[in-house]
């Protein structure tokens, strides 16, 4: 079922069969974006409890997401914009 994604996620070991660390790396984005299934979630959590490098990459990926969601400033909508949209809509038949 992961087949349609795997090619974009490179690195499978020679036998064409993923190590737990590879599998964890492929799940990283799904996990931080809240898109993982319960099964994937529990595999991931169990693995990072014992694997320091994967734990570390999880921390880094979360940090990256938080940098964007928490630090990127929102621009302020010019006050005139809503008014001109309303005005143009009212002119529309």
């Amino acid at each position: 079922m992961e087949s349609k994604f795997t090619e974009a996620y490179q690195k499978t070991s020679e036998e064409g069969h993923e190590s737990d660390c590879d599998k964890t790396a492929h799940l990283l984005d799904l996990i931080i974006d809240g898109e993982a299934s319960a099964e994937e979630q529990s595999f991931f959590t169990t693995h990072i409890e014992d694997c320091a490098p994967c734990f570390e990459s999880h921390q880094k990926q979360k940090l990256l997401k938080n940098l964007v969601s928490g630090h990127l400033k929102r621009v302020i909508v010019p006050e005139s914009l809503a008014l001109s949209i309303k005005a143009r809509i009212q002119e529309t038949a």
């Binding site: 974009a8 996620y9 984005d29 799904l30 974006d33 990926q61 990256l64 997401k65 964007v68």
Partner: peptide
């Protein structure tokens, strides 16, 4: 979406 997001995050990182 998934692969693009992954590559985008790598560049941003």
């Amino acid at each position: 979406v998934r692969s693009r997001l992954h590559r985008a995050r790598n560049s941003l990182k």
